[in-house]
Computed example of a mutant assay.
Amino acid sequence: MEVIPAIDLLAGRCVRLYQGDYEQSQIFNENPLEVALQWQNQGATRLHLVDLDGAKEGTTVNLDIIKTIVETLTIPVQVGGGLRDRISVERLFNLGVERAIVGTVAVENPDLVTELCEVFPNKIAVGIDARDGKVATKGWLETSTVEATDLAQKISNKAAAIIYTDISRDGTLIGPNLEALKELAKVTDIPVIASGGISSLTDLLSLLSLEYLGVNGVIVGKALYTGKVDLKEAIAAIGNGRIQDIPLNFDDSAMA
């Protein structure tokens, strides 16, 4: 299972939101490139980059910062936020972005997502961000009537991954929604990446119980920035972890 550190960009800064609320943003670093290099140096094999301004505006906003990060790092970068047409996606690929993440268009224009998956096989990830089981769109500012599981079933099998985020847990450090992840992973053969709520190595290891269903990655944000999770330790724990080797009452101190 891949542990993927996240950088959320807002007004050119590295921030984290609480439950997707733009009014509850916390600045962690004024220099996102510095943070990206930090995660790469600690062993990250991929970086998750979100343009929060882009998600809100419907078009990529922090393009220069994304370009600098992609050109500087040696690990692959996946980028989401405001990608609602083919031109925007192609622009990122021309910068060297390895994987583009689309979300809103999966609900509003599913045919475009199918087309993108066909034209760029294994380079398009679909972000399914759910609030009470319903898919949220437009930077989480609106909630649709589409069930997350229904959307997952309709995604082209040429998609690289589904990134599932439980909005109510994002930025809260209260742990992942294992039941919702399980239900979503059961209805699709596309690899699933978990996101939202990770607060400890215990939370990370709990995801190994879903690996057999295709949950093969986890995005970690606030827990890294607050020091609750050490990236090197997390990568080692997940990389070496076998669910049968994990004691039923494991705790973080046992994994240190």
Rank of each mutant, 00 (worst) to 15 (best):
P176R: 11
A237G: 09
T114I: 12
T72N: 09
A36N: 07
I75D: 02
Y18Q: 14
L33H: 07
I190D: 08
G81S: 01
A100H: 09
E71V: 07
V126R: 03
Y22A: 04
N216W: 11
I162D: 00
E115S: 13
E211Q: 10
V50H: 01
D189P: 09
G82I: 00
S200I: 10
L231R: 13
A44H: 04
E90Y: 04
G175D: 00
P247V: 02
K158I: 06
A254E: 15
D150E: 15
L208Q: 11
G227L: 11
F120C: 01
R91W: 03
V192T: 07
D230W: 04
T145E: 14
G54H: 09
I69S: 04
V146E: 11
V107L: 09
D111V: 13
N29K: 12
R86Y: 07
K67S: 13
R91K: 15
L73F: 13
K138A: 09
D245Y: 04
S25Y: 13
T149G: 07
D245E: 12
P121L: 01
I7F: 01
A36M: 07
G241F: 00
E211M: 04
V146I: 15
A106G: 07
I243C: 01
I75G: 00
K123Q: 10
R242F: 06
A161N: 09
A256F: 14
L231P: 05
G12F: 04
F250R: 02
L173G: 05
E179P: 01
L181R: 10
L181C: 12
I163T: 02
T143F: 00
Q19V: 03
E179A: 10
Q244W: 13
Y164G: 11
L181H: 10
K138T: 12
K134D: 14
Y212N: 11
A11T: 05
D85I: 08
P76I: 04
E183T: 14
L112N: 01
A136P: 07
A136C: 09
L207D: 04
R131Y: 15
A256C: 15
V126H: 06
V119R: 03
K228V: 08
G43F: 02
L204Q: 14
A130N: 05
T145Y: 08
Q42S: 14
V119K: 12
E90P: 05
L52Y: 03
V61E: 12
T226K: 12
D111K: 13
E23L: 06
E34G: 06
